[in-house]
Design a protein around this nucleic acid. Structure first.
Length: 606
DNA sequence: ATAGGGTTAG
């Protein structure tokens, strides 16, 4: 509890005129120094209170430097003494800017961001002028609360006081707008900075990363490297690695890994885990596994990442193996681990194992299943063709199913040709107003396959009337450390015509090996020939052609897609891997496909 | 005089 009683030795009892004068004034200064040293050495609130009493007794608290130092020591200590600091603060007749700054910082350190902002407000009310030390901390409070209104007002105050050129204030503003998701403001401040520090780059990259603006992250990282203002800081590289993971920028990720190794002797678990994730999600399961095995300290999340990685690459059995090793090592699986291992089961069609684990999680580990767990289970059952069971699970869940769950059921219905359940799933999706155009297209396509043309057209009209446009499919491919993006039917890289020439040549060879275009998934009202043309322009094929032209013979090709792969691209890529003798790795929305010698690691289960 | 910005993994 608060120890306000000590404050009853109020310093007003010892007015300055009663203090020893002249010769002893020097003594007093010395005493003050001594006590301030003592105060700083305190290791607990109890100790602090005792020294505080002495300071009050000697009247040293009258000196504002002394009282400010004492207050700062208390408010910023790590022995959790904000309450006591408050009571000291309240006793101050005229708290200075420094005292307010101290208290605001104390609140922020204690995660009490509301009080930090209230106190800043008090400060203005009492006409104590904030300074360049006030703003970084107040803005941090706004950032953590993501309150942009307050943040903008405070930005106004910064201008009024002429503090807009202070680097610390600018960095804090970038961060505040970033956390409030106003990226334009962050960029505007960043651009007009004359001097940038490492923290400025860190803040602006983090702002883009939090909005999943991965291209911008990498571009900024490049700018930073070019301007030479950089050291391999974990805090920056962790966001860069995240961008590499999302964009499949394997080589750049490897460079980032290299500079981390050069500059930092021991990488912490978080960085190691994000490196591992980068390798795994850029298609190199081997490198990810290697890092995992060399990690000295592993926690639940490191295990989860490698388990889900094995799952994504189709190694369900190995995922289960690592899972049991984790349990043997005495690390208790948490809800995240279960998401990884259940999804690994789902990708490999390990239905019984998945069901067992789900029960174990609920009844042995007492983990309440979340939406993600139910999602895995619906996926597991649905993909295995147990559609009725999947539907029953959705209906009997204690929480209301979200769009992801219904979508997973819908896609299972599509794979297993169950129009009746598919309609139910789609109805629920439309009711949830998640406005995903592909949901409409999937259902429409199912109607078309059942030759219910009228229904098919009705759904398409519904989609168009709601102003939904199909998400363009794209594929990313890295060539010579640069990531290239291909959109379906893309003509922009193809000025020379090389890519389409290549596509033409490839198709000729593929047909020779027995390839027949599979137009069943082209969701367009056009004739067969046009459908065949559309298929040729699928982004994955463009990316493969581009990579075949621009990379050396026999080297592996890695592709990242935003959507799932269509059947045609799947069988096409299998043949390309055989004819051109290339290993091709494709990460689609769902999982990895490793194409080699005409086969795919998913064994056509996806 | 006393203090400060960015700080991470599925």
């Amino acid at each position: 509890m608060m120890g306000t009683s000590v404050l009853n030795y109020n310093h007003h009892l010892l007015p300055s005129k009663d203090l020893p004068q002249s010769s002893s004034e020097l003594n007093l200064k010395q005493k003050e120094q001594e006590y301030l040293c003592l105060v700083k050495k305190c290791k607990s609130l109890e100790e602090f209170k005792q020294v505080h009493v002495q300071i009050l007794k000697f009247g040293l608290f009258l000196d504002s430097f002394c009282s400010s130092s004492v207050l700062a020591t208390c408010a910023l200590s790590d022995w959790n003494s904000m309450d006591y600091a408050c009571s000291i603060f309240q006793q101050l007749d005229e708290p200075t800017t420094f005292d307010f700054n101290t208290m605001i910082r104390g609140y922020v350190n204690n995660m009490n961001f509301e009080n930090a902002i209230y106190l800043y407000n008090d400060m203005l009310q009492r006409e104590v002028e904030p300074d360049n030390f006030t703003y970084p901390v107040v803005l941090k409070a706004c950032a953590r609360l993501a309150v942009i209104q307050e943040g903008m007002q405070i930005h106004g105050h910064v201008f009024k006081l002429g503090l807009e050129d202070d680097v610390y204030v600018q960095n804090s503003l970038i961060n505040m707008y970033g956390k409030c998701r106003d990226i334009e403001m962050s960029c505007a401040i960043f651009r007009r900075m004359e001097q940038k520090s490492v923290a400025s780059w860190s803040a602006i990259i983090a702002a883009h990363a939090s909005l999943a603006m991965w291209w911008e992250c990498l571009a900024l990282f490049e700018d930073m490297s070019r301007e030479g203002c950089w050291r391999a800081e974990e805090s920056i590289l962790v966001n860069v690695l995240s961008a590499c993971t999302h964009l499949g920028a394997f080589h750049l990720g490897r460079c980032a890994h290299g500079s981390l190794l050069k500059n930092i002797t021991e990488l912490n678990v978080a960085v190691m885990t994000s490196l591992m994730d980068m390798y795994v999600k850029c298609g190199s399961l081997q490198k990810g596994l290697c890092l995992f095995q060399n990690m000295t300290r592993k926690n639940q999340l490191s295990y989860s990442v490698i388990i889900s990685g094995l799952g994504l690459h189709g190694y369900g059995r190995q995922a289960l193996q690592i899972f049991s090793e984790m349990v043997e090592e005495g690390l208790e699986p948490d809800d995240v681990t279960y998401v990884s291992v259940l999804s690994a089961c789902s990708h490999s069609g390990l239905v019984d194992e998945g069901l067992d684990l789900f029960d174990k999680m609920k009844f042995e580990y007492r983990i309440e299943p979340t939406m993600q767990h139910y999602g895995c289970m619906v996926d597991l059952k649905g993909r295995a063709g147990l559609l009725e069971e999947a539907f029953q699970l959705v209906q009997s869940m204690p929480i209301k199913a979200n769009d992801v769950l219904w979508r997973s059921l819908l896609s299972a219905c599509k794979v297993h040709d169950n129009l009746k359940l598919g309609e139910i799933a789609a109805e629920n999706l439309f009711r949830l107003s998640s406005h995903n155009p592909s949901d409409y297209l999937v259902l429409s396509n199912m109607y078309a396959r059942a030759q219910q043309w009228e229904n098919a057209a009705k759904i398409r009209t519904k989609m168009i009337n709601r102003g939904l446009i199909q998400t363009p499919g794209y594929s990313l491919v890295e060539v010579k450390s640069k990531v290239y993006k291909f959109v379906s039917q893309d003509k922009s890289y193809c000025k020379s015509g090389n890519i389409y020439k290549m596509i033409h040549q490839m198709e000729w060879q593929l047909r020779f090996e027995g390839y027949m275009p599979d137009t069943s998934q082209v969701m367009l009202d056009v004739d067969e020939e046009e459908k065949g043309e559309r298929l040729k322009g699928h982004s994955q094929k463009l990316a493969i052609a581009f990579a075949l032209i621009h990379t050396s013979q026999g080297s592996a090709i890695r592709i990242i897609r935003n959507l799932r792969m269509c059947n045609d691209c799947h069988s096409y890529t299998k043949l390309v891997s055989m004819i051109y003798e290339r290993e091709i790795t494709v990460r689609d929305r769902n999982r990895f496909h490793h194409f080699k010698d005409g086969n795919c690691s998913c064994r056509d289960y996806w």
